[in-house]
């Protein structure tokens, strides 16, 4: 139960943070990505603010054996830079630049009630699930 309360609060604060910071505005995102034009660098401070807080907390956390409400930390362990990592990031960057939504802001913006946001999210979810399915079939064969 405690794990669910933390999950809920984390999601709540995350969505509010996205809204406050400007990350849910596609126009603002595209102006931030427009380094070759009239660049709006203000959104760089979203990442700076988030990293300052999380960097400090992470340093402190690594001295602990386990999280407070769970037995183990579920941390990524891979260190290798492989082709899927780079190729995936390229595709994601292009998609982000085409519309102005990354996954968190797209989900949050569903509350804005615009059909384009809904179509973006459906396309994103179907392709995520579809890719995972095809990849698992390929692994079996």
């Amino acid at each position: 139960m405690k794990v669910h309360i933390i999950g809920f609060l984390s999601g709540l604060i995350f969505a509010l943070g996205l809204g406050v910071s400007g990350m849910t505005q596609t126009e603002k995102i595209l102006n931030f990505l427009d380094v070759f034009g009239n660049w709006d660098y203000s959104l760089a401070f979203v990442m700076i603010g988030a990293i300052i807080v999380h960097f400090i907390v992470y340093r402190w956390i690594t001295h602990k054996d386990s999280p407070i409400f769970s037995n183990t930390f579920h941390m990524p362990t891979r260190k290798d830079i492989d082709k899927p990592l780079v190729f995936g990031a390229i595709l994601f960057g292009i998609g982000w630049g085409v519309v102005g939504y990354c996954p968190g802001p797209a989900l949050t913006s569903l509350a804005g009630g615009n059909p384009k946001t809904l179509v973006f999210v459906i396309s994103m979810l179907v392709s995520m699930r579809g890719y995972t399915y095809l990849d698992s079939k390929r692994a079996v064969n």
């Binding site: 709540l12 604060i13 910071s21 979203v46 300052i52 999280p67 409400f69």
Partner: peptide, 19 residues
């Protein structure tokens, strides 16, 4: 942007510390 970013940092930190 800075305040919203820090909220995102708090959300990420809570999920890591507790869960």
């Amino acid at each position: 942007a800075l305040i919203g970013g820090m909220m995102i940092g708090v959300a990420a930190s809570a999920l890591l510390i507790f869960n």
